[in-house]
Amino acid sequence: MLTAHYASSRFGQLHYVECGEGEPVLLLHQTPRSWTEYRDVLPLVGATHRAIAMDTVGYGASAKPADDQSIEMFADGVEDLVAGLGLESFHLVGHHTGGVIAVEVAARLGSRVRSLVLSATPFITPEKRARAAWKRPVDWVQPKPDGSHLMELWNRRRHFYKPGQEAALNRFMADAVRVLDRAEDGHIAVRLFAMDERLPRITAPATVICGQDDDPSMPSFEPMVNALSATGHIVPGAGVPFPEQRPEEFARLVLDAVASAGAADR
């Protein structure tokens, strides 16, 4: 059973949903999503572990501070949730923006992060940061009185979903419309993140995964694997919405990484 909760933080209330008992596995979503990205993954991981999916600060039902968004601010929210839940150690999973946040959290918390799974996580170099201001918007659309901006947003994302996956695209739309005025901020935060300074500080055993059809993320796969000396998996038939398209495969890879970390500890 999925249960929804709130925890206090320096930003206000943080919303999270959890399932199961045992070793905690914390899952971080992409921009501009919410915990619903992991709706079908949670019960699979929760069958053997305490699976927790939080709404990043500024998204979903979590507090929405007026400050400029940054990966560091998102990571502050994760740290506050971890402290509020009393998690001494945990396994960490991030998809797209969530993976970049996970990099910062793992760099900060060291051995408290027992394993790290980075899914379709952008590999941000100094050259990419220098070009950040010239990147076109990913999800921001200009609101129009006739509501046609909603169709524009739908069409901008539609090609990532296969026929029959409209329910997942509906969930994306609900999340995006909820933060429409700041839908692009998370993407900007990713492009400005000094990832090259943080990756060397990570000590957790890392697994890097990516859907083969995730064209924006595939170029980052090998650089991330090499930077972390990570185990890598490319999954056919999965794209940008990997956790929703292939929840069983996503959960299996997460649980394999968790089990591998546990075996290394013994």
Rank of each mutant, 00 (worst) to 15 (best):
H96E: 15
N170R: 14
M73L: 13
R136T: 14
D214I: 08
F90Q: 06
A47C: 05
G232Q: 04
A176W: 05
H15T: 02
M73P: 05
A204L: 09
Q142F: 14
T97N: 14
H187M: 15
A227W: 05
S34K: 05
V82A: 08
K162S: 13
E23W: 10
M218C: 09
V45P: 01
L92F: 05
V141I: 12
A251S: 00
F11T: 02
A168H: 08
H149C: 11
K128I: 14
A75L: 03
V235L: 08
A102C: 05
P122C: 03
M195N: 02
L169P: 07
Q69R: 15
T3P: 10
L192R: 05
S89G: 14
D175L: 01
S217I: 00
R108S: 10
L28P: 05
P122Q: 03
D67E: 13
A7S: 10
L169E: 08
R131I: 11
I234F: 05
H96N: 15
R157G: 09
V208L: 07
R129F: 00
A66I: 07
E37N: 11
W134D: 15
H5S: 02
K135Y: 15
P126L: 02
H159C: 09
L199H: 08
V240R: 14
R158G: 13
M54W: 09
D67P: 06
A251L: 03
K162F: 11
A63N: 04
K64R: 11
E249S: 11
T3A: 13
F242H: 01
F221K: 04
V17C: 03
R10S: 11
R39Y: 14
G86A: 03
R266W: 15
L26I: 05
R136F: 14
R50S: 08
D139L: 14
R178F: 12
D196F: 06
E152F: 08
G46F: 02
Y38A: 02
G98H: 01
A261T: 06
A51Y: 00
L44S: 01
H15C: 01
R131N: 14
T31I: 14
Q165D: 09
G186Q: 07
A132Q: 02
T56F: 04
A176Q: 08
A251G: 03
Q13S: 13
S9T: 06
G186W: 02
L199K: 00
R136V: 15
Y6V: 08
Q245D: 12
Y59K: 00
F90V: 04
R10C: 11
V25P: 00
Y16H: 05
N155W: 07
V254D: 02
P163V: 06
M218V: 13
F172N: 01
